[in-house]
Simulated assay, not measured.
Amino acid sequence: MTMRSAPVGVALALALGGCGTSTATRPPSTSTSTPTSTSTSTPRHDREHEVQVLKADCMKGKGFRYVPFVYPDTPSSETDWPLRSGDHEAEKAFRTKYGFGISSILVYRDEMPGSGPLPDNPNDAIRNDLSDAQQKAYAKASNACESQAIKKVTGMDVTDAHDHSSKVNVLINRQLRSEIDGDPELVRLASAMADCMVTKGHRMTSTKPLDVAKWGGAVIGRELHELARRDDTSIPPYDPENDSGYLPKLSPAEARRVLDREIRLALDDLECGKDFYRLYRPKADKVVAEVDERYGL
């Protein structure tokens, strides 16, 4: 079973692409190391750096060595999520191969945008050198220090970085509900998109704009999440408002069958939603960017 958390950067793709869930291409900052310099500094990146420095100081106070570390941002490129560009043909080409970008991580693990190798985290080696008992104490201290640092920097009460990502996603969805579902033109276009999807044999459960935008990805995400829960009962139930989930272990043939179905659904979604997404994307992008700038790490 592979965990898929949805950091805010991924939530942006979800909001823009009609996906209800997606894969994270970098781990949440619970396992992070030495601040990496980047060519541009953003409030979000500065906050992540600050959290790491505070966490290292806290860990030192608890008797553990911890190296502040921020994973480098994945640069945009021609292979980055084309759904963010508004180019219909580019998005169609993406969806023809990757669907919504959910189960495709199981088939094209090394080809997905942003899935290149990550730098080694020095804290992994530090933790692995400890005894089993010390590792448990280290993990407990790590979560406590991370929670403390995130609260100081963002003002949010969280248990760790994964919980922070989940709560930011909930904030994004709450704001999207307010601004997207109340737009009369989006309401009209979402209803038309839902009618189109029904004619293609899909059972739509809502015609609210945000529900329609997220419906296709949520269908696949929920299915994979429940398969993962079947193998690991400790996994919590799927939460559609969180935009995060878990991927199960599937054989190559099983993963391919899921992806083929996802691709068909994603292409129907794109065809029926061509007019809807043209208006929805810039509005959703603005909402996600605003929440990300305020609370994201």
Rank of each mutant, 00 (worst) to 15 (best):
W215F: 01
I105S: 13
D239Y: 06
L259E: 09
K283I: 10
D183A: 10
L176A: 05
V8A: 15
L14V: 09
K283S: 08
V10E: 10
V288K: 15
S29H: 13
T74D: 09
G155A: 10
H202S: 14
M193W: 07
S77R: 13
R26V: 06
S142H: 10
A190I: 01
A24C: 02
L83R: 07
G61H: 10
D160S: 15
A144P: 03
D232S: 08
G63D: 14
D232T: 00
S41N: 12
G114I: 13
K214C: 09
A6G: 08
R127Y: 03
Y71I: 05
Y108I: 08
L118Q: 09
A289H: 04
S33E: 08
T30H: 12
S29V: 04
A11H: 13
R4K: 05
S85C: 07
E223L: 11
Y238K: 08
S33L: 07
R177V: 06
K214I: 06
M197N: 01
A11Y: 14
V212L: 03
P248A: 02
I172L: 09
R188T: 10
G155K: 08
R294K: 15
D80N: 14
I105K: 13
S251P: 05
A24D: 05
T36C: 11
F276H: 15
G155Q: 06
S104N: 02
V67P: 00
D132L: 00
G9Q: 07
A133F: 00
P282I: 07
L16P: 06
A6N: 13
A6C: 12
I180F: 11
E226Y: 02
A141Y: 03
S85N: 05
I172Y: 07
D232M: 11
A255F: 11
S191D: 02
D232F: 04
V287G: 15
P282Y: 00
T159D: 08
S33V: 04
A139F: 01
A90L: 14
R4S: 14
P27S: 10
L106V: 04
P240M: 05
T79N: 14
S31D: 14
K92M: 12
T159V: 15
L130I: 14
V287Y: 04
G99D: 02
S31K: 11
D124G: 05
